[in-house]
Design a binder for these strands. Structure first.
Length: 769
RNA sequence: GCCCAGGUGGCGGAACUGGUAGACGCGCAGGCUUCAGGUGUCUGUGGGGGCAACCCCGUGGAAGUUCGAGUCUUCUCCUGGGCACCA
């Protein structure tokens, strides 16, 4: 939407033209997509199903409405995304951003928190790091709710903690700035109201909150310690307590939490150690400026003194539950997913707000609710809200004048099920059961690591929600996941104007880089993720025009493993180009004259030819394994090694022509998936009429994979002193003798006594002196 | 601030479960081919020393475990991704 405005066009037009460009580029790379299944999520034919899904979620209690905070730009009168808030100011207006509460729609991802966590270990073909990130994001913790009586007030303060064992070290309580207690007290305390307003000026991001200076405000209210009748502790409002986590209130134990300790130092609160390190004994343990967070035994803690932390936790929980002063509780860091966006370019939320009936779902017969094409995108605020007629409708229940919901869905909504729609892209239903059963889950999903949590977790939630609504029986969308890196390129700056320069506009004369448009000198900067804003992009079509799709494909596959960032450098392209030319010569002008296609293996192969033949089969084995593991760069390296070896074939050797043909055919077949166009051409040149793509993967002669001899490294005190060639599975005694007989080993050992010799069969021999 | 990765020659990267660090490619240097340039081809290429055989040092830094550490452990520095409205 923002890009369309910037380019003075309609988002629909902008989107469609981008899709066309990308489709053309993908096709020119020769990527084998099934274009018959193409879909666009901005098409009403796609998003109509989302409106139905949302209403189904609503019926299942998986969607609900609540107040939540947004960044508000008071000058532009719009909600700002987090990335549009720069140093607390609106990115365009520069105005100080405020926080506002809006009533918004939420999807209940927390209903599946346990299951989303429990299924992670079963996602065996997901990277461990992604599963870890999701586990931490869901953040399940076991703790307790503790109810603190408030002195002179009828209500009590409910706190969530995972460290109830440290309750005797509690010296303060703190509530979030938007905790009901804080708000109530602020009504009669203008200073507190100011403090709360200050807290609300902090951004909505966790990073902003966590890095801000920790501040508190003493409300004057006291809480009674649940086990110590005479102990009253102060209640603060603090900017680091999150309303969204737990109960929005904590108790602070400065001795055993660093943040609490810093807070206590700042506000002159007591520090009572209640866990002593095992070696410290029961007395004399003091906390200075570092909180003790390790294991230990309880001290200063009444009836739990001497216990371990674990025992203390369960004892405290028992006593709390018995006294009605608290209970065991499981808490999640995961929060429900807010899907309302105050933007035009998205799927309209199918709800009608009636002054009498409240939020009423749009009737099934009135779906889909489509976007008006004539909204004014440059107006201040939400374009749908400002549209003259679109929002005016009658209430489906009472028929009185009512107003459409003018928010649209977060576009993560679209990306949470598109993969399932690919199974039956033309079906009249959102998901065709038989197609889903056949195709889903996705065997191999690919996406950037930046999606590790949000998109991938939303999709996992969405499938579960759809399952609950009867759409499918599948709850995990992706059985295999590969997280790919980003494509990077050097950046260039015009040294006079300071502007970014496109690589295509560079000119290089005598090692001096200039901008061919301005003639100014250009400085080259570090390689960064390709982005239009920094202009460090290369046009794939220009590469394809100059070198062909196969060269571009080979380069991308061979330079970096797919899960790492790829640094795009023109020099690498040249290397790939040279290899393609070399392959072509290898087949069309072979060094040894190939026998005709399908010639039988000659009866005798010279030792040299036999060795190459063995290498062919080893290469097939390695490449097969590398491809299975997505180690494309290694697969390319293996194939190149085989090419180098084939160049060494001597035409006079027995069987060399036959082996040469085997090698050329094998390379052609192995490289086929990477460079399909030239591989087909080479296949034809090799004398075959059928398509290579229809050939089975080359077979391996297993008997050729094993070597008779192995080269074993010989070390003296862990330092390499030579190698010995030994028969495979050679006995330790002969290996030891062979090693000690090496002149270099004998010299290094000299007349020192050999203390021991470590022999790892077929691997290494280490002589220890 | 928190969570997750990564750090290996001039560069991209290899090194499966601890066992010959630097495969393969780029770049660079020199030779051959050519009228010349390019292409092609051969040789060399982690740093230092030595005529050589060889020796010393080397995987961000520090310490540790081990016969042996790029790989394991602890601490630390730097870079990247995410932190719920960029998607």
């Amino acid at each position: 939407e923002n890009a369309a405005i910037e380019n003075k066009t309609h988002p629909a037009k902008w989107t469609k033209s981008n899709i066309s460009t990308m489709r053309r580029q993908l096709k020119s790379m020769g990527l084998s997509y099934d274009w018959g299944r193409e879909l666009a999520t901005c098409d009403p034919g796609y998003y109509q199903f989302e409106q139905k899904m949302f209403l189904d979620f609503l019926g299942e209690g998986l969607a609900y409405r609540k107040e939540s905070w947004v960044n508000w730009d008071p000058v532009e009168n719009t909600v700002l995304a987090n990335e549009q808030v720069i140093d607390g100011k609106g990115w365009r207006s520069g105005a100080e951003v405020e926080k506002r509460q809006l009533s918004q729609w939420f999807l209940k991802i927390t209903a599946f928190a346990d299951d989303l966590l429990a299924e992670l270990p079963n996602l065996e073909r997901w990277p461990e790091k992604v599963r870890l990130m999701q586990e931490n994001w869901i953040g399940r913790s076991e703790g307790a709710h503790i109810y603190f009586e408030l002195i002179g007030r009828p209500d009590r303060l409910e706190v969530y903690t995972t460290r109830h064992d440290t309750i005797f070290g509690a010296t303060f309580c703190a509530v979030a700035a938007n905790h009901p207690l804080a708000r109530e007290l602020a009504e009669e305390n203008s200073e507190l109201a100011l403090f709360i307003a200050d807290c609300n000026r902090l951004g909505t991001t966790e990073a902003a909150i966590e890095t801000a200076e920790k501040l508190g405000f003493d409300t004057g209210v006291k809480a009674r310690h649940p086990f110590l009748e005479d102990t009253e502790i102060p209640v603060f409002v603090a900017n680091f307590v999150l309303m969204e986590y737990g109960t929005g209130a904590i108790f602070g134990c400065p001795a055993h939490d660093q943040r609490d300790l810093d807070f206590a130092g700042k506000y002159g609160l007591d520090v009572i150690p209640v866990v002593a390190p095992p070696e410290e004994g029961e007395s004399g343990f003091v906390i200075t400026d570092e909180a003790y967070v390790g294991e230990g035994i309880m001290i200063n803690s009444d009836f739990i003194n001497g216990m371990s932390i674990g025992d203390a936790k369960s004892k405290i929980a028992d006593r709390l539950e018995k006294a009605g002063a608290g209970m065991r509780a499981v808490n999640f860091r995961l929060r429900d997913w807010g899907v309302s966006r105050q933007r035009y370019w998205g799927c309209p939320i199918p709800i009608i707000h009636c002054p009498d009936c409240g939020a009423v779902p749009v009737s099934q017969s009135d779906l889909p609710v489509t976007l008006p094409e004539d909204a004014d995108l440059e107006c201040a605020g939400n374009p749908l809200e400002h549209h003259p007629t679109w929002k005016d409708v009658d209430c489906p229940t009472c028929s009185k004048p009512a107003r459409r919901e003018t928010d649209t869905f977060d576009t993560f909504f679209e990306s949470s099920w598109y993969f399932a729609r690919f199974c039956s892209p033309h079906s009249e239903n959102a998901l065709d059961r038989s197609a889903i059963d056949y195709w889903m889950p996705v065997d191999q999903y690919i996406g950037g690591i930046e999606h590790a949590v949000l998109h991938l977790l939303y999709s996992r939630f969405f499938m579960r929600a759809l399952k609950q609504c009867g759409y499918t029986d599948i709850k995990e969308p992706f059985s295999g996941l590969l997280t790919q890196g980003m494509v990077c390129h050097e950046t260039y700056t015009d040294m006079k104007t300071g502007e970014w320069v496109f690589p295509q506009d560079l000119q290089l004369d005598d090692d001096v880089l200039t901008n061919s448009r301005t003639g100014n000198r250009v400085s080259a900067g570090r390689s960064e993720k390709m982005s239009k804003s920094k202009k460090n992009v290369v046009d794939p079509e220009a590469i394809i025009d100059a070198y062909g799709a196969d060269t571009a494909r080979l380069f991308m596959l061979s330079d970096s493993p797919p899960d790492r960032d790829l640094d795009w450098a023109d020099a690498g392209i040249e290397g790939a180009w040279r290899y393609i030319n070399r392959l072509w010569r290898m087949v069309t002008q072979p060094l040894v004259n190939f026998p005709p296609a399908n010639s039988p293996r000659p009866g005798r192969l010279s030792p040299a030819a036999a060795k190459v033949n063995q290498a062919i089969h080893k290469t097939i084995a390695w490449v097969s394994e590398d491809l299975d593991r997505f180690h494309f760069n290694k697969a390319v390296a293996r194939i190149r090694e085989l090419s180098n070896l084939l160049d060494g074939l001597n035409a006079k050797d027995d069987g060399a022509p036959w082996v040469g043909r085997q090698g050329a055919e094998t390379i052609t077949r192995l490289i086929g998936p990477m460079m399909p166009h030239i591989a087909e051409e080479l296949w034809r040149q090799l004398g075959y009429e059928t398509m290579l793509a229809d050939m089975p993967w080359p077979a391996i002669d297993e008997t050729l994979l094993e070597d008779e001899n192995v080269t074993i490294a010989v070390q003296v005190n862990g330092k390499l002193r030579g190698t010995v060639e030994l028969p495979k599975d050679c006995d330790e005694e002969s290996a030891r003798n062979a090693a000690l007989a090496l002149p270099n080993v004998a010299r290094t050992v000299g007349d020192k006594p050999v203390r021991k010799v470590i022999v790892v069969p077929d691997r290494i021999i280490n002589v220890v002196i």
